[in-house]
Write a protein that binds this DNA or RNA. Structure first.
Lengths: 212, 212, 212, 212
DNA sequence: GATGAATGAGGGTTCATTCAT
DNA sequence: AATGAATGAACCCTCATTCAT
């Protein structure tokens, strides 16, 4: 532990501790002294690395979101088809959540509060993350594989929101009934192919599409 | 106003005041005394109607959610086709949000915190609300208009999440770029027909569907 | 006690407690909770009557100084001759200090700090008090009983300073060697007649000295 | 600068830095780290030269006061007549203040606090300084030029206090209205000749006044 | 000697809740 | 039932001091 912890530096120790404590208690019920204890530093040390309690949360957001952006970026770079990219985004997002449950909880639950109630905070990184999907959609429209009447600004939020809510279920449920793989498949498909059962009216071409 | 306010009773006065204050400040930054002032009652009076500050929020959730359930129930009862019901649900949800912005903000932003960090709270009413979509999906599958491999428990959350995120955008954005009507159309369609542009491969039947 | 304390109100209770605690510990070493205990109120109660710790000190200054101004005003109104007024001022000042040792200590020791280091504080009342002597000097010059080359703005500060330093000695010394009466006599005379021994020039009598 | 600063030694660097910082912020609001920064040393270095924060202030007092004593001593040694010595003391005191405004502020404002609230501190040097005037008075009485009923212990404090208050005005006022020379004249005269206008008794001349 | 990162005790202040009126 | 003054526990943050390097 000594080596590993030391190398990461106090800043990261505190961030990791904060992730745990915020996940467990929520931002407002978390005590700075608890984060300090979890990080094995003195209370005062926190304030050598962060301006105040708010700043811990905001830094946590920005740093972690940056990592997520990178990883999602890599994942979607590996496939070409925009619809496959959507699937890749969904998969990567859910897998990251699975790997970092505590962090996911904090992102999920505290990010909204913060963006609204912490004065100076603009969730820049979050918007960047969102734009990853937005860009996929735009490329898909250009490539002709996504319907041209889709509005990327709305679609990106819809997709993110769907994922986010799944995550919430994941995070809050003690025993999720469905595997992550199933969820990836389901959610990707909702967005890619919709809910409509096209096989049911196999004799006639897809009216909703041709009508558009 | 005087008459109207009096008739509604102190309990409702306080709930309405809480909606305003929580929307403006967030639950944790809201002061009980501010709710009291907004409701034109004394601080102590709050405690004649609610056990504590948490209880105000929880009561607010349950009562308001009950109203929403009723109204959505009525809206989806008016149409028969499950896919039309999905559209009706989406429309009704977004319209209610438009009508009650403050309430929507509180629901949006505080509900998650609460379900996780308030000890005894189970968001029963919220789950009931969610099940309205779940039931639609199930009926759709039975009726054969929704693909049989759709898992209702996942679909309902995905749909709700997409709506919820849109709402967040509405609520937080000063000037939303897209009308509510556009949003209803877009979101309904994502779920009903997906993103895929089927007209692009018009010569051959929908491979993704026939393959499934 | 109950009646007496109750009648004075919490505000005054706190001020009196603060006088005691500030006198004993000094402003910066005094704890708000100690003032609360001394005043027999809860810590929080202090903040119903004062904005913060600074405000207790400032209020204390202004209120007490106002009382002092009134009493000195009355004392000097009783005599006519400006030189007698100087003596009356000196006497009244020293007597008040004797009566309210704790208060005097606080005024003495904390007023200077405050006027310099508390942002918004201007010791208006103190300046009013100072002007009582200033006015006496001016009247004395007009009446021709005080030398016309005396600058009131300097004289008033010199007189106050002399008194103030005497007070410091009184306040800090455990056993002052000289009675207050002696001090009044001495200090009044320094200012009225100076230190010079006019009797030494025996060939020309100095009435003021021989009369003494 | 580099050479000069180095030569003076860290101890003096710290004292000089402390004078500046205490003058600007006051003892209690001054931070040790700020003194360290001003002195261009590390925080920890302070504690190699001083026991604690209090000790910085006390050392500052004693060392600087010692210098003042020497310089006043030299100034009053140059004149013989006790009344001229009083004038010389007043002049030297005010001139030193003029030259070392920051130091004067600290002496003025912090000395009182300290003598009362710092446990082990006895302002020995200050009392020595005060005694310089006391001795002048005693000599004046013996020589017959000062009235025999003057009590030196009181007179010395009165004179010092008058000077001190003038200084306060000097130090706190942005633009003093009166020159130092005027002030020296005025204050010396208050003590030497008092306020009484002896010329008003025009039938019997008063040498001291007519000489002016 | 010099450094400055780390410490952790301490205290001003807030605010949900109570209860005498 | 209604009030709102009073309560006091709780907590963020500061900063004098230490000590490993």
């Amino acid at each position: 532990m000594a080596v590993k912890e030391k190398d990461r530096g106090k800043h990261d120790q505190i961030i990791e501790a904060a992730v745990k404590v915020f996940a467990k208690k929520g931002f407002y019920n978390a005590k700075v002294s608890e984060i300090a204890r979890e990080a094995s530093v003195a209370d005062g040390t926190i304030y050598l690395y962060f301006k105040n309690k708010d700043d811990i949360l905001i830094s946590l957001f920005e740093e972690k979101m940056q990592l997520w952006i990178q990883r999602v970026d890599e994942a979607i770079a590996k496939v070409d088809d925009p619809l496959d990219k959507v699937r890749a985004f969904v998969a990567q997002h859910l897998f990251m959540i699975e790997e970092h449950k505590h962090l996911a909880e904090v992102m999920q639950i505290e990010l909204r509060q913060s963006s609204k109630f912490m004065r100076r905070y603009v969730p820049v990184k979050f918007l960047e993350y969102l734009d990853l999907i937005g860009t996929i959609i735009e490329e898909g429209i250009e490539a002709g594989v996504i319907r041209p009447d889709v509005i990327p600004a709305i679609a990106k939020r819809a997709i993110f929101g769907a994922l986010d809510e799944m995550l919430l279920y994941w995070v809050l449920a003690k025993k999720p009934k469905y595997s992550l793989e199933q969820s990836v498949e389901q959610i990707s498909r909702f967005f890619i192919d919709g809910l409509r059962n096209r096989n049911a009216d196999s004799d006639r071409p897809d009216s909703s599409q041709s009508a558009a």
